[in-house]
Computed example of a mutant assay.
Amino acid sequence: MASGGATGVSTSGPAAAKYWLRTLALVYLLFLLVLPVGLIAWRTFGGGIGPFVTALTSPEAVHAFRVTVVVAAWAVGANTAFGVGASLLLVRHEFPGKRLLAALIELPMAVSPVVVGLALTLVYGRFTPIGGWLESRGIQVIFSIPGMVLATVFVSLPLVVSAVVPVLEELGDEQEQAAQTLGAGSWQTFSRITLPGIRWALGYGVVLCLARALGEYGAVAVVSGRLVGQTQTLTLFVEERFQNFDQPAAFAAATALALLAIVTLLVTKLLRPKGGS
């Protein structure tokens, strides 16, 4: 009897703790995520689908979509090329300063995006040596698309590297060395051995980078100048429309961003490297 009672106590304790932790997590997510996002969706479609379509097809909204896609495409392309190269460098080679390079790549995760925007302005602004030299040659960085791309590249820099490095370490380099022994060149080894081995991790990192680029606000807000119809991304469009009391347009754009986030989440689940949590 004593043993049974002890067993009953030992099993009920963890079960009760699990129940309360689950309840706490659900309540936390309800008030932090579900209710706010649900309220935006309700306000967006409260008047039907018509206002939603009208808001997103306005010239300002279409231009914001276009700028967002252009900035995100350049940022993802740059970070994909850099991420693969940096991952191979960190995993396959030993050199002085390796740990410093790895730390610098991770730095954007710790720096506020607003600080990033300010730093870029101090380097590439019109009245700085570098920015002035570029503008004298017809290249404007700050308050234009190039500055927005630079800001987005910076904030999303580590994502591809973080996804690819663990997979490269797990794969090892035995197959690559065997291919080189048989006469394969560097590009053949990469395209036929390395790339197929990291393709899912690379896709996962690219999708994460795309999601970060599409939703970036802080750094882009500083370097863009928030010029309506010129340097306004979708996130900036939401803020500008809300501050100007155009709530239907603000809610419609916010809902579009939320839908993009949901799609991105589903894709990342599909592309998550095996063994990831």
Score class of each variant (00 low, 15 high):
G203E: 03
L89E: 00
I105K: 04
G46D: 06
Q230P: 02
L100G: 12
F127K: 07
A102N: 04
L24A: 15
W187I: 12
A61L: 07
A41L: 15
V62N: 07
G47T: 07
T235M: 13
V267N: 04
V222E: 09
G83V: 00
P158M: 08
A55M: 12
S191Y: 05
A253K: 07
A2C: 05
Q247K: 05
A179M: 13
A163D: 01
T44Y: 08
V34L: 15
A55W: 07
Q175E: 08
Y19V: 14
A78S: 10
Q140K: 14
F65V: 14
V123G: 00
V149C: 07
L104P: 01
V161D: 01
Q140D: 03
V67L: 15
I142R: 11
S186D: 03
W20D: 00
G147Y: 08
V223D: 09
G125K: 12
T80G: 02
A86D: 01
Q177Y: 06
M109F: 12
N79F: 04
N79P: 03
G47L: 13
Y28Q: 05
P158H: 03
G225S: 11
L100Q: 01
V91P: 02
S144I: 06
V228N: 10
P273A: 06
L90V: 00
D173E: 12
E60Y: 10
N244D: 12
A184C: 09
L107P: 04
G4P: 05
A261G: 15
I198R: 02
E94H: 10
M109V: 13
T44N: 10
F245D: 05
V84C: 02
M109C: 02
V149Y: 08
R92H: 11
V207T: 14
A119Q: 03
T255I: 11
G197T: 00
G229L: 13
T264I: 12
L35M: 13
A86T: 00
G218A: 14
G132S: 10
W133S: 06
P59L: 14
W133T: 03
A102P: 00
R99M: 08
L39H: 11
I40Y: 11
L265A: 13
V37T: 12
T11V: 15
G131C: 10
L168P: 01
F190P: 01
F82M: 08
G131L: 10
P166H: 01
A253T: 09
E174A: 15
G197I: 01
V165S: 07
L227C: 03
S144G: 02
L120M: 09
E170A: 15
T152A: 08
A64C: 13
A86N: 00
L202I: 05
I49P: 01
F65I: 14
V91T: 14
T189P: 04
L210W: 11
A253F: 13
G46S: 15
A16C: 10
R92N: 12
A253D: 09
M148G: 11
A213R: 06
G48S: 08
L134D: 03
I130C: 00
Y19E: 08
G83C: 02
V167R: 11
V70Q: 12
G185H: 01
G13K: 14
R126V: 12
T80P: 00
V160Q: 00
E106A: 14
V223K: 11
L195G: 04
P158K: 02
